[in-house]
Amino acid sequence: MTALLALRALGLGDALTGVPALRGLRRRYADHLLLLAGPEPVSNWLASLGVVDGVVSTTDLSGRPPGRRLGSHVAVNLHGRGPQSHQLLQAAAPRELIAFDSAAAGHLAGCRWFVDEHEVGRWCRLVASVGASCDAADLRLPITAASDRAVVIHPGAASMARRWPVTRWAHVAAHLRSDGHHVVLTGTEAELCQALSVASGAENLSGRLGIHQLAERVASAALVLCGDTGIAHLATALGVRSVTLFGPVPPTWWGPAIDLDLHTVLYHGSRVGDPHADRPDEGLLRISVTEVLTAARAQLAGTRPPST
Results as ranks from 00 to 15, higher is better:
residue 43 S to H: 08
residue 155 P to V: 14
residue 273 G to Q: 02
residue 42 V to Q: 10
residue 80 G to V: 04
residue 54 G to A: 14
residue 198 V to H: 11
residue 276 H to G: 06
residue 14 D to R: 06
residue 190 A to T: 15
residue 293 L to R: 00
residue 165 P to I: 07
residue 198 V to A: 14
residue 73 H to E: 03
residue 261 D to I: 00
residue 18 G to P: 03
residue 281 D to H: 10
residue 186 T to L: 05
residue 249 V to C: 08
residue 47 A to L: 07
residue 41 P to S: 10
residue 202 A to M: 01
residue 256 P to C: 09
residue 27 R to G: 15
residue 24 G to W: 00
residue 253 W to I: 12
residue 131 G to C: 09
residue 81 R to E: 15
residue 4 L to P: 09
residue 93 A to P: 08
residue 131 G to W: 11
residue 95 R to N: 09
residue 161 A to D: 07
residue 81 R to W: 04
residue 17 T to S: 10
residue 191 E to K: 11
residue 84 Q to I: 07
residue 271 R to D: 11
residue 224 V to F: 06
residue 219 A to C: 13
residue 43 S to A: 15
residue 37 A to F: 03
residue 82 G to H: 03
residue 14 D to N: 14
residue 138 D to F: 06
residue 7 L to P: 00
residue 22 L to R: 01
residue 35 L to Y: 01
residue 117 E to W: 00
residue 120 V to E: 05
residue 210 G to A: 05
residue 42 V to C: 08
residue 7 L to T: 02
residue 164 W to L: 11
residue 192 L to H: 01
residue 113 W to T: 05
residue 205 L to K: 03
residue 169 W to N: 07
residue 303 T to W: 07
residue 94 P to R: 04
residue 158 A to T: 11
residue 119 E to S: 12
residue 140 R to T: 14
residue 290 T to L: 13
residue 252 T to P: 05
residue 281 D to M: 01
residue 279 R to M: 13
residue 16 L to G: 09
residue 212 H to D: 15
residue 203 E to D: 14
residue 90 Q to W: 06
residue 304 R to K: 15
residue 49 L to N: 07
residue 271 R to Y: 09
residue 57 S to R: 12
residue 148 D to Y: 05
residue 77 N to I: 00
residue 233 H to T: 05
residue 3 A to E: 08
residue 19 V to C: 06
residue 248 P to M: 04
residue 212 H to Y: 06
residue 285 L to S: 08
residue 173 A to S: 01
residue 303 T to A: 14
residue 208 R to Y: 02
residue 260 L to M: 11
residue 27 R to T: 12
residue 294 T to N: 13
residue 138 D to P: 01
residue 141 L to G: 04
residue 35 L to D: 03
residue 168 R to E: 12
residue 104 A to G: 09
residue 88 L to Y: 02
residue 32 H to C: 12
residue 110 G to L: 08
residue 118 H to G: 00
residue 101 D to V: 10
residue 122 R to C: 08
residue 178 S to C: 12
residue 235 A to H: 07
residue 307 S to F: 01
residue 4 L to D: 01
residue 35 L to H: 04
residue 96 E to G: 05
residue 142 P to T: 08
residue 256 P to M: 10
residue 33 L to R: 15
residue 269 G to C: 10
residue 269 G to N: 10
residue 164 W to D: 03
residue 151 V to H: 01
residue 146 A to H: 13
residue 109 A to N: 13
residue 38 G to S: 15
residue 34 L to R: 03
residue 279 R to L: 09
residue 244 T to I: 12
residue 10 L to F: 02
residue 271 R to G: 07
residue 154 H to M: 00
residue 160 M to H: 13
residue 286 R to D: 08
residue 308 T to M: 13
residue 29 Y to G: 09
residue 43 S to T: 13
residue 284 L to Q: 01
residue 57 S to K: 11
residue 174 A to T: 15
residue 131 G to V: 08
residue 122 R to T: 10
residue 219 A to L: 09
residue 193 C to P: 02
residue 59 T to H: 13
residue 215 A to E: 07
residue 45 W to L: 06
residue 207 G to D: 05
residue 230 G to V: 03
